[in-house]
Nucleic acid binder design. Structure first.
Lengths: 337, 337
DNA sequence: GAATTCTCTGTGAACGTTCACAGTGCGGCA
DNA sequence: TGCCGCACTGTGAACGTTCACAGAGAATTC
């Protein structure tokens, strides 16, 4: 006979089973210090034997807290879901939040309808905080978020709102400098770059770092733009080869685009790294499986995710403000440079 | 001056502003037919002007419904997050559920602790249904799920529980048959296969389909096993080449493993498709960017995801049972075979 | 020995909904 | 005229918590 008692046990059932009152059960469950050890033990036993689980809805109603955080994906396209970095972020965030018994709900904010839904959800007080993923600088959601006055933290800086929305991010600029310097030290003379979208911190800052080392004017003709997709990496590489046939190195703003660039270089008969050195960015899974293996810049993504969650939880716990974090990157040399 | 009124408007505020009672507001909001057009208009106006949003916690408390569905990722490793199929599923499910104003919360059930958390969450009645992703046949979560008596649907069949947990899935077996037949028709004589894990429907059924065409005994020596990872595809390909140096085709159980196999074939100096034809499975993004481009079997993943969500919503809406779905695959010929 | 503090406990109210029930007019029908 | 059904509305109770408050003893202080 299945033990499916129709009704879920409530705090009253626990109270009855343990011989104390609702109030005491509630206190015992929530770690209030004013609970006798006897009462605590009785409650513990009763909880175990009734299989009681707190009803979050009822709790939310009175505490005005939901135990829920929303991860907002404000990428217009489906691109984000193909970004290997996204999976890392999602995995780490889910785990970290679960440790605190906070549920993570996913929402996409691609079009206006989506966005309206997100705002309605938040305005309804259904979440205690917001985790922003890859928000572009012009995203209209950001303004709405500010009027909502709900704790929000971004994973990666939000361009133009660095002071407003706290974030944890990798040091894109310094990482790009490391790579550029490395290529220079290897004796490369004509170093090009393929950037990510310039309205993202990764796109912009990696380009900045590149220019820091090589000089802004010197590289003017050596810049091509992509959108982080593999395909855009191919297109940009073709463009560069047409424009600067004698380039001998290229720093690509993401591993995925670098994979595309490698394909085009092979197609055009350039040997890597003999003729052209290629450097990527991310050190994602793909970097180890290109041919040749990709020399790249490792982003501490897991740490970024962990810290982002930490910042958000601090805000939710009542911190007035939190300090944004910039975490350092590391050059990983493999075969392509 | 920001219009941040401290208190969120409640149904009482709307009632007052529209000059009707709580009950009528509630009815108007929930589409009850017994509401006069005048009242309906008044309520609409009041909602707009107060910015009212229903409090889900309060609603849940009385309706016993949460408007939430849990997506459980029961992959032991982090593998799932690297699976390109996962992103498709996540994207589609999020969208479909959002259309019905159902929130999707993500939970990982990797280790026992995770699993306990998931069960506690469900037992607490915090979700109306469960979306199962890539559950293995022996997963202890499944048994627990059954005792919980909560609507659950799997994306892809759950081996050994096909009758218990409804699902939507691609027709793996028929897809494998298509590919095997195609290779035969191309005149290939020694056709090997690299399987996925045999405790997954994809691993098992694709092998079955392969054997359907080629005969179980005939292929005995031509089978190697992988775990869907790229690395395992490389290892399996090496093993096959060592064992059967004169093979002239290989059907690989996933595109990612096929990419690994291609790398090994190149490394061993085999031309694809001249010396060895390679067939993949999934038609994921990677299939278009290998070298040569991968001939593969397209899974209607978006449709699988859509249908999975539909089945779950039907169960939640009270359907006693729902019919599982098997959707047909399609051979996509590119360069590798 | 009385007053005060400290620890622990129970109780009533409140959170914001929905639902069942009990009306209230109003029109149609016998 | 009286009765019934129909369309609509308002009200009280309930959902399962937490929180503030008040009270009971025991321990401590004066």
């Amino acid at each position: 006979m299945p033990v499916t008692n129709k009704r879920r046990p409530t705090i009253h059932d626990v109270a009855r089973a343990s011989g104390v009152s609702r109030g005491t059960v509630s206190r015992a469950l929530n770690g209030d210090p004013y609970v006798s050890t006897a009462a605590l033990a009785a409650v513990r036993r009763a909880v175990a034997e009734t299989g009681y689980v707190v009803n979050r809805a009822a709790r939310s109603l009175v505490t005005q807290r939901t135990g829920t955080v929303v991860m907002v994906l404000s990428e217009p396209q489906e691109k984000l879901f193909e970004d290997p970095n996204f999976s890392v972020l999602l995995r780490v965030a889910t785990r970290r939040l679960a440790q605190r018994d906070v549920a993570l709900v996913m929402m996409v904010a691609g079009d206006d309808g989506d966005r309206e839904r997100v705002v309605r959800y938040l305005r309804g007080g259904h979440a205690d905080g917001v985790l922003l993923l890859s928000a572009h600088s012009g995203d209209p959601l950001l303004a709405e978020l500010e009027t909502l006055a709900i704790p929000a933290v971004a994973c990666g800086a939000v361009l133009g709102r660095e002071g407003v929305i706290p974030y944890a991010a990798a040091d894109d600029r310094e990482g790009a400098r490391q790579m550029a310097q490395y290529l220079v030290d290897q004796g490369r003379k004509k170093i090009a770059t393929i950037t990510g979208p310039l309205d993202t911190p990764g796109g912009l800052n990696r380009l900045e770092g590149f220019c820091d080392v090589l000089g802004r004017k010197a590289v003017k003709k050596l810049i091509a733009h992509g959108d982080y997709s593999r395909h855009s990496g191919e297109a940009a590489m073709r463009e560069l080869l047409d424009r600067v046939p004698d380039l001998d190195a290229v720093f690509v703003g993401s591993d995925l685009m670098a994979a595309g660039a490698l394909a085009v270089l092979r197609e055009r008969g350039r040997r890597v790294p003999e003729d052209v050195a290629v450097g990527g960015f991310d050190d994602s899974a793909i970097a180890g499986s290109t041919h040749p293996k990709l020399t790249t810049v490792r982003q501490p993504l897991e740490q970024v995710a962990t810290e982002t969650v930490r910042l958000l939880l601090e805000l939710i716990d009542g911190a007035e403000t939190v300090e944004s974090l910039v975490l350092s990157t590391e050059l990983v040399t493999r075969e392509s440079a």
